[in-house]
Amino acid sequence: MTRYAAPGAEGSLMSYGARYDHWIGGEYVAPARGGYFENPSPVDGKPFTEVARGTAEDVERALDAAHAAAPAWGRTAPAERAQVLLRIADRMEASLEALAVAETWDNGKPVRETLAADIPLAIDHF
């Protein structure tokens, strides 16, 4: 049985930043009210990063960005949109094991499931 080191530990396939903001409009954006919360891993119960705490203002900002981007994406040729999605799938496939380990540390599901089912299915969806 393969054992994976905790994120950020020596030999780990994954590392996380100390804190993550919202990803809105193609950039990281601090939460409107400045709130963050610790994200503990179900694997060991220890926090491994902090995550922005979203509020209605953050949702509105994200919706505004999505509505602003929609017309350009809608005018993009279907074949070009397909290529974007295929490139995402290729990047995911190239990082399959690291993504599976990251998913396991985040949600506690056994890595054999994230490695053999969850991430491959996500790749297939793209």
Rank of each mutant, 00 (worst) to 15 (best):
Ser15Trp: 10
Gly8Pro: 01
Ala30Val: 04
His125Lys: 07
Val111Glu: 02
Asp118Arg: 03
Pro42Cys: 00
Pro42Thr: 09
Ala82Asp: 11
Asp64His: 08
Leu13His: 05
Ala116Arg: 14
Tyr20Cys: 06
Gln83Asp: 12
Arg61Phe: 06
Asp124Tyr: 14
Ala30Trp: 06
Leu85Asp: 03
Asp58Asn: 11
Glu10Ile: 05
Glu57Asn: 09
Gly74Asp: 11
Glu103Arg: 04
Leu86Pro: 05
Arg61Thr: 08
Arg75Leu: 15
Val84Lys: 12
Ala72Leu: 15
Leu96Tyr: 01
Gly17Met: 08
Arg53Lys: 13
Glu38Ile: 04
Gly25Gln: 08
Ala122Phe: 01
Gly8Cys: 00
Glu38Lys: 07
Asn107Trp: 03
Glu38Cys: 13
Glu27Tyr: 08
Gly11Asp: 00
Trp105Lys: 00
Glu27Gln: 14
Tyr16Cys: 11
Ile24Met: 07
Val84Ser: 06
Gly34Gln: 11
Glu93Thr: 10
Ala82Met: 10
Ala77Asn: 14
Trp73Gly: 05
Ala89Trp: 04
Ile123Glu: 03
Arg33Asp: 15
Ser12His: 02
Asn107His: 03
Asp21Gly: 00
Phe37Lys: 01
Val29Lys: 06
Leu121Asp: 14
Val111Leu: 08
Asp58Gln: 07
His67Arg: 14
Arg3Asn: 15
Glu80Val: 14
Pro47Ala: 07
Trp105Gly: 01
Glu27Phe: 05
Trp73Val: 10
Thr104Arg: 00
Gly108Ile: 04
Ile119Cys: 03
Val43Pro: 02
Gly35His: 13
His22Tyr: 07
Pro120Glu: 02
Glu60Leu: 11
Asp58Phe: 03
Gly74Tyr: 03
Ala116Gly: 15
Trp105Tyr: 07
Arg19Ala: 10
Met92Val: 08
Pro120Cys: 00
Arg33Thr: 12
Asn107Ser: 08
Arg75Lys: 13
Ala98Arg: 00
Ile119Ala: 09
Thr49Ala: 10
Val111Gly: 02
Phe48Ala: 08
